[in-house]
Design a protein around this nucleic acid. Sequence first.
DNA 1: TTTTTTCACACAAATTTCATGTTCATATGT
DNA 2: ACATATGAACATGAAATTTGTGTGAAAAAA
Lengths: 261, 261
Amino acid sequence: MSEYASVNQANHRLVMIMEKLNKYGRVDVQEIAQELDVSTATIRRDFNELERQGHLRRVHGGAVLSNVSTTFEYLYHAKVALRMDEKKRIAIQAAEEIQDGDAIFFDSGTTTYQIAMCLSDKKELTVITYDMSIATVLNNHPSIQVILTGGIVRQGYNVLVGSITENFIRNMMVDKVFLSADAIHASFGISNANYVESGIKSLLVSAGKKIILVADHSKFDKIAVSKFCNLSDIDMLITDNQISHSMAESIRESGIEIKCV
Amino acid sequence: MSEYASVNQANHRLVMIMEKLNKYGRVDVQEIAQELDVSTATIRRDFNELERQGHLRRVHGGAVLSNVSTTFEYLYHAKVALRMDEKKRIAIQAAEEIQDGDAIFFDSGTTTYQIAMCLSDKKELTVITYDMSIATVLNNHPSIQVILTGGIVRQGYNVLVGSITENFIRNMMVDKVFLSADAIHASFGISNANYVESGIKSLLVSAGKKIILVADHSKFDKIAVSKFCNLSDIDMLITDNQISHSMAESIRESGIEIKCV
DNA sequence: TTTTTTCACACAAATTTCATGTTCATATGT
DNA sequence: ACATATGAACATGAAATTTGTGTGAAAAAA
């Protein structure tokens, strides 16, 4: 609970800055410092950090939006770094679907990362992923072979993207794919807040014998910019118990096995 | 200088344990704890860490050698994690060879890692590597495109190996390759303490227009188990000023440009 | 120009993280 | 059954990180 306190405090400032920036196009050092009750030096450091990440551009007295428009996705992921309890419960359930000897693919994301953390008692797994954080956390596990797809490192996200990654996935067939998503909608299908990873995800649903979607309740009944597959492409959904009854019903009607934890 | 003190202290314990283990086949918690003047709890933690890395196996009261024999290479790298000053000086010189717009390949290793840390003022670089640590440290640099080759994650070393990696490199041609090595010998050539990365390195010398070898003086006049290329395959050598005069001479005679820093 | 504001850098204070040691209930081997 | 080893929980001090403050330089405003 308090284990994320300092991270979130800093993160919260960055989110506030980006939200304000997104609304007004420009923010002041002084103004933000007062609003968040920290020194101007701290806000300057925050601005520099966000500029380094390419999300804004410094100007005298404040900052303006960068021409590269990643604001929406940035906010999306920065905010969603919460709901850890749900994600961990989902991860434990997901890990139970994995048998010794399986070849599995982990999509990128915090939930799939949590699944990777639950594999300590598994044996002889082959894990493939395009998420460097997942590869790193499994690096020292004695009986898991980890394969990283290769590709262009996506600025600030620790994942590999582009045609190298996509071609790799095209030649791949694993037992289980653990898929994540930004938004799930009964009629629109499953979508993501950015295009680059979307291309990868749409290939993933054809790269495994069983496609397992992991997503906490906050992702449902939403639509994000880039659709990558239909609900019917999924074999199983693992989510938490705060998902609405009607939503669960309509998913079950699509022929998807659903587990709420 | 003191910034690595704690790391080295812990690292020193691990090296001692592995050396003793290598000599006697088994070590005791009590014995090691006394010898290194730390608590048994610390030694247990060390044993657990080494077991997690696959270098030994815990038994009651102590530890025995793991069946996987990586001891030699482990000791090699653990010990060589020193000489940071030299490595940093070499890295600064190496970075000067890089021009804006270059496509470069970084071999794995601590020296090449240091080069990656010296790129802050470069622009429009394309960096390719099979070393995840290097990819990670460059991850947030705004004007560097980082490409990771893909491959099997090598247990405990954070690098990618195997046919996936090798095939990737076969189809590659960069401006400059920064190569590292475990051992350099005037007549035997350039060699490495393990086979898996050796295969990659031998491909690397054909994958760039200019091959630059970076190595501190401790690597010279040594032979390691797996040779991967000849001295004549190298275009430039960057090393420190403690290299012997005769060695420098015979390298220069092979037609290699040599820089001592 | 002069004045004011903003900035970057250096240093200090506060806070967090981390390695290690200690204690204690439980496991294990003889 | 006994002695020892173990792992978990907690304490502690050191190191690293984050934040705040002050100062002189640089930039904007007057």
